[in-house]
Computed example of a mutant assay.
Amino acid sequence: MTGLRLDRLRVMRGEAALVDLDLTVAPGEVLSIMGPSGSGKSTALAAIIGTLDPVFRMGGRILLDGRDVTTLPTHARRIGLLMQEDVLFPHLSVGGNLGFALPPGLPRPERRARIDEALEQAGLGGSAARDPATLSGGQRARVALLRTLLAEPGALLLDEPFSSLDAELRAQIRQFVLDRARERGLPVVLVTHEPEDARAAGGPVVSPLGTRLAPWGLPR
């Protein structure tokens, strides 16, 4: 089985169910989870990546390409996460930030080649030595995505990563992120409160409790 399988994934707080998902996200597909603030969207991502607060109870299984990762620590799940904040390390250069995602034993010439290639593909060639503080918001978003992809995840979670960008830049970066994920055949779970994000993603849209939402029926 390929893709990301949420097998009767259920998250409870007390007697209330916040997440109830039973579905598979295929390679290259984007599942959008929509709902108001506090409805359980980010809780679903925390369950998938393994950072769920102990106040919650979780049932069901999470499988990635047929491998059960439910009880594995976050670093062993091979699931990447891109958040609203780009969380670039301020004490490292752009290249240093990207190198952080590469295997520690990789020879230095190969590390440099991978970093340079990634920057070229993102239209940021020659930026390896730059201070992240000198980058624009869109450039920082691209570097954050590159760092996530260089770690070679098997799936990608997007926790409202476009919400801090203005409308024009939002559309541009959203397309950049989705295109790169599809090129790599990654199953993607996008959490958003913006109908336009869900429409652009083009995949199924559900609430945290698994209710199917028709993207063409979402309010503009």
Rank of each mutant, 00 (worst) to 15 (best):
R77C: 02
G125Q: 14
L156I: 11
F162I: 14
R114Y: 07
R114A: 11
L81M: 12
Q139N: 05
R78K: 03
D159S: 08
P104S: 05
A128T: 07
S163W: 04
R114H: 02
P107M: 14
Q121K: 15
H75F: 06
V143I: 15
F89K: 01
E168V: 14
L88N: 01
L145W: 10
S93E: 01
L156M: 14
V87N: 15
R142P: 09
S136E: 07
L150R: 06
Q139F: 10
P153F: 07
R78A: 02
E152V: 10
R130N: 08
G138R: 09
I79H: 11
L81D: 03
G96R: 04
L135E: 00
S164F: 02
E117A: 15
A118M: 08
G105C: 08
P103A: 12
L92C: 06
G154R: 12
A144L: 01
Q139H: 10
L106E: 04
G138I: 13
A76T: 00
L82N: 13
L135C: 00
A128D: 08
E168C: 07
G95C: 04
V143H: 06
L92Q: 07
F162T: 13
P103N: 06
D166A: 10
G123M: 14
S93F: 02
L98I: 00
P73Q: 02
D166V: 06
S93L: 05
A129M: 04
H91T: 11
F100H: 01
D159F: 06
R111K: 15
F162E: 09
A122P: 10
L150N: 07
I79F: 09
R140C: 02
D131S: 11
L102N: 01
A129T: 12
A118V: 09
L165E: 10
R147D: 00
L146E: 05
A101L: 04
R108M: 10
I115E: 06
I79S: 05
L158Q: 03
E152Q: 15
N97Q: 02
D159H: 07
D159Q: 07
F162C: 13
G80N: 02
S127Q: 15
A167M: 05
V87F: 08
L102M: 04
V94L: 02
A113I: 08
L88W: 02
G154H: 10
R78H: 01
G123E: 12
E117G: 14
G126M: 14
A128N: 12
L156D: 10
A144M: 05
A133Y: 04
F162Y: 14
A141E: 09
E160V: 11
V87S: 14
A122N: 13
A118R: 03
L135P: 00
R112N: 08
L98E: 00
